[in-house]
Design a protein around this nucleic acid. Structure first.
Lengths: 259, 259
DNA sequence: ACAATAGCAG
DNA sequence: CTGCTATTGT
């Protein structure tokens, strides 16, 4: 059987909030080492990868590998029934076609369980792009979220330019033109820092719509990391403290002048 | 003449919020002892009963019994014009066909009055069902509201099963199946307690839509009481501290297998 | 009428 | 973390 118990159940609620707008359905791969999900979004533009380590759970048991295909909007509706301070346990029998979510209030006086049908989804296991990037930027996740939200008022594209001095975001459209520059932090205040690890300067343009989907993961981590190389998908990564991480991949827009 | 003054005017606003979605029009019966309203909802499915004791008002005068038929959505719109900390006074002349609402700000610097036409409504005075129940549960009203809201995601019916150990709510539908169990509270924290007074176990099923109408009374009281007997309407009761109470009656759904 | 959201207070 | 308010969209 499979069983995973998470005392800080709000983390799982947050994970679902971070992916449910991108993925209608997806499969959770459960193994001894933990739980993984990888899928292209509904429009097959971006790729989402979630990794939850077995050690991150307060109890974890997975006798046999198992793939649980779920309707994520149903799963999200179920998790909305959990309070933020509830303890969440996911369970499945080895060959069952259902999964059970159990929520326990901290004082144990309220216990609820929700059973949901699993589904067979096409397996689309996807090779994750290369691991060396010309530029890796770490910055406060709330800062990144704010920038994406602000710039998406100006246009459908957000341009990100990174040099060793700092990172610049820009967008332009009917309203006007917007530029936001962040300098690499000198003071190393943890969590507040902007840190740039640069092999070579990079300038790329991305869909603001997808960036705005990615920033829904903001509550999961105070920091976000952006990895970029020319003509290669951007990686937006949030580390979930003690539990794992969630990554989003998005190919850059091709500069129209290239054609 | 009739006059009723309520320093805590927000209570009256809350009462209207608690009934206006169920009742388009209704009659307020004013007597020396207080104000009463009883009516079937618009679809003649549930019954609403409001009781406001004369002693609950800060000033109360009712020279002759009088029945004030009102359009409750108009009354609600008028009460929305009162601030939450306003003092509210209702007034009517003995044979008038209008009622006046007066709102005074706490510092007396703003005084408003609103006059509304009364209407003649068919008198449908309704016998309230029996008073002995197989099972009476008191629980935090916010908990009950949360459960009704959560379970209504799963189906149009909510099943309530009560034993002396606790109370269980369930629902099922397309998304899956949901069960919520509350144990009778051991610690007698006031307002937080789940208290079950049980003659015999009861299991009944109700329309989630109507339960979701009833929980609009939640702001009126920290506690709600559910009274149930087999094949008899459920009573959902909120006590309005120092002022009276509001009760909702709803017949259980008939088990289809009975037919 | 309801749900989702954001912002703020306790 | 909860409550309340306000606001929005479906």
């Amino acid at each position: 059987m499979f069983e995973a118990r998470l005392v800080k159940g709000s983390l799982l609620k947050n994970v679902l909030d971070a992916i449910k707008d991108l993925l209608k359905q997806a499969s959770w791969d459960c193994a001894d080492s933990g739980i993984q999900l990888q899928a292209m979004d509904n429009s097959h533009v971006s790729l989402v990868s979630v990794n939850l380590k077995a050690e991150g759970f307060d109890k974890y048991r997975c006798d046999r590998n198992l793939i649980m295909g779920m309707d994520l909007s149903s799963m999200s509706k179920i998790l909305k029934c959990a309070a933020n301070d509830d303890i969440i346990t996911m369970k499945a029998q080895d060959n069952a076609d259902t999964v059970t979510f159990m929520f326990e209030s901290p004082n144990q006086e309220k216990v609820s369980d929700y059973e949901m049908k699993l589904m067979n989804l096409d397996q689309e296991h996807l090779g994750i792009p290369e691991t060396e990037y010309a530029c890796v930027v770490k910055m406060p996740s709330s800062e990144f979220a704010r920038i994406c939200r602000d710039l998406s008022n100006f246009g459908e594209s957000i341009c990100i330019a990174c040099t060793k001095e700092g990172i610049k975001f820009c967008a332009s459209g009917d309203i006007g033109t917007a530029n936001i520059k962040l300098a690499q932090t000198s003071s190393v205040e943890k969590g507040e820092a902007v840190i740039i690890d640069l092999q070579e300067p990079v300038t790329l343009t991305f869909s603001s719509h997808y960036l705005n989907m990615f920033i829904k993961a903001t509550p999961l981590s105070p920091q976000v990391s952006l990895s970029m190389s020319p003509e290669v998908p951007l990686v937006v990564e949030y580390n979930i403290p003690d539990l794992g991480q969630i990554q989003y991949f998005l190919a850059p827009k091709i500069d129209e002048s290239d054609s």
